[in-house]
Simulated assay, not measured.
Amino acid sequence: MKRIFKGRSRTTHQTQTIQEQTTRKARVRNKLAPYLIAVICLTSFYSFEFLPNFSDRYNSALTEYNLAEKKNKAALKIVKDNAKGTVAGDAYAATYAVALEKWNTFKMAKKDERVFAFKSLQLFLGEFGPMFCFFVYAMFMLVRSFKFDKENIALKILHGLIISGTIFYFLWMFEMSDFPRIIYYLMTLISATIVVWMVWLVKRFTESKVSKLEQQRKEIAKFVYLHTKPEAREKMLDLLEKNLK
């Protein structure tokens, strides 16, 4: 029997050890996961800034086209000058005048259609909507982390980075394109830091107010209990316990 008991005890101890190791590994994964996701988010938000707008092949082809177009306009000017006073030249001038008038009308309509840096409201909302959704989600999760995961700094860094990325895109959407790239980064990081700090202050102020109210409730309950008749104190204690839960 002693051998059986020892064997069972050893098996139980091994099982507990395995469970503790599994729990420890899970905790490490849970702590590292937000940092990994933060790196992925940061890379996806800003990686495009380190790439050229177009490839060398594209730029070379565009340069050659511009040269060819310049030569074509010079040749066309000669043709127009030679055609002045002719039937074909007069017909072209009349057609060009109508086309120019329509082009100016179109440019006015195009200008009126623009919303910030976008050609239309639909295109603006197509970019703004998803970014605003990410911003609201990150703000919600940031506030939630201060309430339910106070010690988890990684979650606060992750959601702060998401907020900084959305702010970066907001700045771009609202035509703030005349600043150097480093100013963009500083503005987004500073804005995200301020947002996180403000959320922390609001949460701290709220907890302080709740704590004071809770303390006042306890003081009132204590006062009521002490001034209750001895024969009714047991019932009053039950009532106070229910209300203080």
Rank of each mutant, 00 (worst) to 15 (best):
A232C: 02
T63V: 03
L155I: 02
I4D: 07
L189G: 14
V98R: 15
I190E: 03
M131N: 15
T193D: 04
M108L: 04
A97D: 10
R29W: 12
K245V: 04
I153E: 00
T11S: 14
N82Y: 13
Q19G: 08
S44H: 08
T17R: 14
R8G: 15
V98H: 06
K2M: 14
L158K: 03
N66T: 13
W172Q: 07
V143I: 15
A221K: 07
L42D: 03
T23E: 15
L121D: 02
L51D: 06
S164E: 05
M139P: 06
N243R: 15
F148D: 14
E101F: 13
V143Q: 11
K25G: 06
D149W: 02
F54P: 03
Q215M: 09
L161F: 04
I167M: 10
F205A: 15
R204H: 04
A232D: 14
V195M: 01
T17I: 12
Q21F: 11
V224W: 07
V79K: 12
K80R: 14
K107V: 04
P180F: 10
C133T: 11
V224Y: 02
N66M: 07
F106S: 04
T86V: 01
L213A: 13
K147N: 12
V143H: 08
F140D: 05
Y65C: 02
L237C: 08
M176H: 13
L186Q: 09
R8V: 15
C41E: 07
F128S: 05
G85T: 06
I4R: 11
A97Q: 11
V87P: 09
E214S: 15
T228L: 10
S145W: 02
Y225N: 10
M108G: 00
A91F: 07
E175C: 04
A117E: 05
